[in-house]
């Protein structure tokens, strides 16, 4: 199954079998090359994710220009403080994930497990705050569809708000559709990330990732930071740029 000898980068052939780390696959010459190939592949995947979210950002950009008053009205129904807290929570989870990668690099099993669990806790905290926000949208009838109510946009209670004509008020549904699509897809990525993190913790308990082979942790870190970046753009676009002042 395994070839008895491998060629090194110098062209010299090692006589003894497996004079290389057990995790080095035979189609790579060095661990470094294997590592580069793995992160290159991960980055290509993340770029397809950029395109995936990019489509929704593009839709947001065009619709915001078409139905600007509706987007302003919709934006002001969001709680800016919950959004800010969630941004802080997510950046903290990025820090703990970065520290998890560092712990794996330093081969410290305990701190790796601690940082991975902290990342899970912060991820769940983010989703918890998000679910509070979603619940409020259901209560206020701000979820696009049959039970959607334009009442608050036609007769706003906020003195700073501009009353919208009924046809423009209907277009707030476009804003809320994009809000739910974008934050929903982001939340789905978080849920997938937390699921993978749970698997990583279990495997880290078994001694994985602290034996010098930590490609999985590194690549998962890239994924987690990517999800953070998506939120870094969602936060100003959905919460901040159209506040009444």
């Amino acid at each position: 199954m395994d070839s008895p000898a491998i060629a090194t980068g110098n062209g010299e052939v090692l006589a003894e079998a497996h004079a290389h780390p057990a995790h080095l696959r035979h189609h790579f010459e060095t661990v470094e090359q294997q590592r580069d190939a793995a992160s290159f592949g991960m980055w290509l995947f993340l770029l397809t994710e950029v395109m995936f979210f990019g489509g929704m950002f593009m839709a947001y950009l065009v619709y915001r220009n078409w139905y600007h008053p509706a987007f302003v009205a919709g934006c002001n129904t969001l709680n800016i403080w919950l959004g800010t807290i969630n941004t802080v929570v997510l950046i903290c989870s990025s820090l703990t994930m970065a520290m998890a990668v560092y712990s794996a690099e330093m081969r410290r099993k305990k701190s790796l497990i601690t940082y991975l669990i902290l990342t899970i806790v912060l991820g769940i905290a983010f989703l918890g705050i998000k679910s509070v926000e979603y619940a409020e949208k259901f209560e206020l009838h701000h979820v696009p569809g049959a039970s959607f109510s334009i009442e608050q946009f036609v007769h706003p209670t906020n003195p700073k708000a501009v009353a919208l004509a009924p046809d423009m008020a209907e277009k707030t549904q476009v804003y809320f559709s994009l809000y739910f699509a974008m934050t929903g897809m982001h939340a789905l990525h978080m849920i997938i990330g937390i699921t993978i993190l749970l698997i990583l913790v279990v495997r880290a308990f078994g001694g994985a990732y602290t034996d010098g082979h930590m490609t999985t942790i590194e690549n998962f870190g890239l994924y987690w930071h990517f999800v953070d970046i998506i939120w870094i753009f969602l936060f100003p676009l959905l919460y901040l740029i159209s506040r009444y002042r």
Partner: peptide, 12 residues
């Protein structure tokens, strides 16, 4: 030679 290879792997 194994030691040499390890050094090569980690230099970058």
């Amino acid at each position: 030679s194994q030691h040499g290879a390890t050094e090569l792997e980690h230099q970058e």
